[in-house]
């Protein structure tokens, strides 16, 4: 171990801490998905893992220390992995179409309504999960179900 001081900002390589997590902490796989698949599945993660997510956030509100909510955090991650695996088993084609569209459209939902609707339909039929945006005014069509939106792709 070289313990001489290097200022972090002048380092030529990013900081890498090789020490693994203490073995007393149960092992959990990380999700490992990039931003587009996560954004594509965000509302389903919100619907499917609602209880775990809320539990974790309430725990974080108690105490911000990382050690305090490791157990709840593992549950959150396991639930998200479970959901993404289920999505891939049941709606792989629609899922990939949607997140590839997000990749090509600056990760905006607006220009990707067509693949999104196919994905939402498949998710509802196979897994019973519905995309709901909390706080939409009653009687108002949620933005992802508007047929002729004013804003769309600039290029047709």
């Amino acid at each position: 171990m070289n313990s001489s001081f290097h200022p972090g900002e002048s380092s030529s390589h990013p900081f890498h801490e090789p020490t693994p997590l203490p073995y007393s902490i149960p092992k959990v796989n990380e999700v490992g998905a990039t931003s587009a698949p996560l954004k594509s599945s965000a509302f389903f993660i919100g619907a499917y893992c609602k209880e775990f997510n809320e539990d974790f956030m309430l725990c974080k509100a108690e105490n911000r220390e990382p050690a305090h909510c490791l157990k709840e955090g593992r549950r959150v991650t396991r639930c998200a992995i479970d959901l993404i695996n289920k999505m891939r088993e049941n709606c792989l084609q629609q899922f990939e179409a949607h997140w590839n569209c997000l990749e090509l459209n600056n990760q905006q939902y607006g220009p990707c309504r067509k693949p999104e609707r196919a994905l939402n339909k498949c998710m509802f039929e196979k897994l019973g999960l519905v995309k709901t945006i909390p706080g939409t005014a009653p009687g108002q069509t949620p933005i992802h179900e508007v047929d002729n939106p004013l804003y769309g792709r600039m290029q047709k």
Binding site: P20, L38, F52, N53, K60, A67, E72, P142, I143
Partner: peptide, 27 residues
């Protein structure tokens, strides 16, 4: 509404990303 949709998609991902970051910070 589009902005609200985007914000909610991020809110739903906060616990997941925070949990992952916390594990790394703890390590």
């Amino acid at each position: 509404e589009l902005q609200r949709e985007k914000i909610w998609s991020r809110i739903h991902l906060v616990p997941l990303l925070l949990a992952e970051g916390d594990r790394d910070a703890y390590r």
